[in-house]
Design a protein around this nucleic acid. Structure first.
Lengths: 334, 334
DNA sequence: CTGAAAGCGCTTACAG
DNA sequence: CTGAAAGCGCTTACAG
């Protein structure tokens, strides 16, 4: 069942059938109806490989997701997928290991598949600076900023990570905490953690204190296990912290578990703030105070910027979407 | 940069270059080396759309995942993706809404893309019975069984859901619980929940008791929110239950939260058992006793069965992989 | 072992 | 408004 069968059965040529498939003008109403009818009756679906081969070789939008366990990315992905679906665009998702380099994967993918566009969930700014040049299709980096990198086909959508982190730490300060530990990510410049740690440091500095990175910061990856180990290392080194700010809900969740295992409790003995605002924080015992990222806006803006690029409507943009400190049960007022 | 460029620069024909790309025999060692060298120097990557168009129109293996928030599926997906990668196969993931029908999506996808194979994470047996017939590529249903459906190209890999549920409920019984509620899923035949509820009923029956579906079972979807609402409805109707068996960790997690909000505690006032053995259960406060599904085996066997189908090595199979009751902190001995 | 040629199923100028 | 033809970048018999 291919386009020639449809042409034959409808009594038109393949060119006309193709125009109908693609909703192009210059087809009589009569022809359109007849062809649609035949296509429906045959359950015909055009061969995507052949289409993509001809249409300057484009396959569907590709999304690259760093890590599989991140609930935030799952939430955003759902938005992106449904937004794209409304425009008739498919989305093909590829998960990357934490140690895979998103950009070189994308370069390889572009050469082999020529996607219409690409989306990166959780990429690292510095990797883009170094490796993005060969990429020509419209791209959007989500949850990190690509501002200042100067690639005309790379947009980004993120919250103000530094501001959000500053607000989280400011909240702890306002509750009387003076010695605050920070958990998670890595300080390599260009990683999103760097912006958040900078925000934490700024919040302390503005209040006449300072973040002692050597002592009060403990990196780890974005997983329960990461948070579990990190808070233990931190507390061993800095037993006087009264609060920890985890750079992800999943880290906070692991940290709460570890604190309990140390025979201490949250928030009575130690306060915890997370980041992301996922269901994990909302349903944990205790509910975790966190920075909620607006996942709906993150997804919507990503789709809008991507479509703009795919339609050649020019220019990239770097947008900020909202966040909100959600006060729950894991912070104690001292 | 296409295959003709490589042919020209290496001094061979496109046929020979193609044979090198595909690792076929009948190429001299000299030609192979030279062509590989040129390809490397040019950073050439064959156009996947053109390849797939020729090779009986096959695009990469497609995975359909029901819902985005399911950690179990994320864990299995990671295994499948890395197993496939070892064989040089890509994986393209599509998330489906809970209300989307996996099989009709797959039928449409097959017609448009002609994937080499398809994997379903969390599909529903009855949907396959009714709609799978048009599908011709090798497929594997994961976490549900397709045994007895009689499709020669549909394998399945799952744990013994009924047995696992029986063991979970048996454990509660052994701890002295007599009135046990069951939370989650839907009883429509062919859904995985039906097998688990059947296991729960069997466990009670074997002990001279019975599961009163009307009173002691409360369906909900696989989410924290689902579990949160379901346990409240259950407790209102059956305030004398001393334990609940949730058909997913995420449901158990939501239920624990709801129980706390009702001013009761786990496991002192109410015991909870989950299902899946995800990080959620492992790090929750309290840690949730659960049935751990062997996600590594689930992924490995899926890849093995899929490759067997893709290589035409005949036959489908329906395999069971292991599970294990993980006793943690959410069950109290009465 | 190698190359020239046909063809996978489409889209898109180009004529009409 | 419509059709015939070229061509997207590959693979695969078929000759040699």
């Amino acid at each position: 069942m291919d386009i020639r069968d449809i042409a034959e059965r409808s009594g038109y040529g393949v060119g006309t059938v193709s125009r109908v498939i693609n909703g192009q003008p210059n087809v009589s109403e009569r022809a359109r109806e007849r062809i649609l009818e035949v296509m429906g009756a045959c359950g015909y679906e055009p061969n995507a490989n052949a289409r993509y081969l001809k249409m300057r070789s484009q396959s569907p939008v590709a999304a690259f997701v760093m890590g599989v366990g991140n609930r935030l990315f799952g939430d955003v992905l759902r938005e992106i997928q449904s937004g794209l679906a409304r425009e008739g665009e498919d989305l093909s998702v590829t998960y990357l290991d934490d140690d895979a380099t998103e950009v070189s994967e994308a370069v390889r993918y572009q050469r082999a598949r020529h996607p219409k566009g690409m989306v990166f969930l959780g990429g690292e700014t510095s990797a883009f600076r170094d490796g993005f040049a060969p990429i020509e299709v419209p791209c959007v980096l989500v949850t990190s900023s690509a501002e200042g990198l100067g690639f005309p086909n790379l947009s980004s959508v993120t919250i103000d990570n530094e501001g959000a982190a500053a607000e989280a730490v400011g909240h702890l300060w306002g509750c009387g905490h003076r010695r605050i530990g920070v958990l998670g990510g890595s300080l390599e410049p260009g990683k999103v953690a760097a912006a958040r740690v900078a925000g934490a440091a700024r919040a302390l500095a503005e209040r006449g204190s300072a973040l002692d990175l050597e002592r009060d910061y403990e990196p780890c990856d974005y997983s329960e296990e990461g948070g579990y180990g990190a808070v233990r290392r931190l507390l061993e080194r800095a037993p006087d912290v009264t609060a920890v700010f985890a750079l992800g809900d999943v880290i906070a969740f692991g940290a709460v578990r570890a604190i309990r295992d140390l025979g201490r409790s949250v928030p009575e003995d130690l306060s915890v703030v997370g980041f992301d605002g996922t269901a994990l924080a909302r349903y944990a015992v205790p509910r975790i105070t966190t920075i909620r990222q607006d996942t709906v806006a993150l997804g919507e803006r990503t789709v809008a910027l991507l479509l703009r690029g795919m339609r050649g409507e020019g220019g990239c943009a770097h947008e900020l979407v909202g966040y909100e400190l959600v006060r729950q049960e894991s912070v104690r007022r001292l």
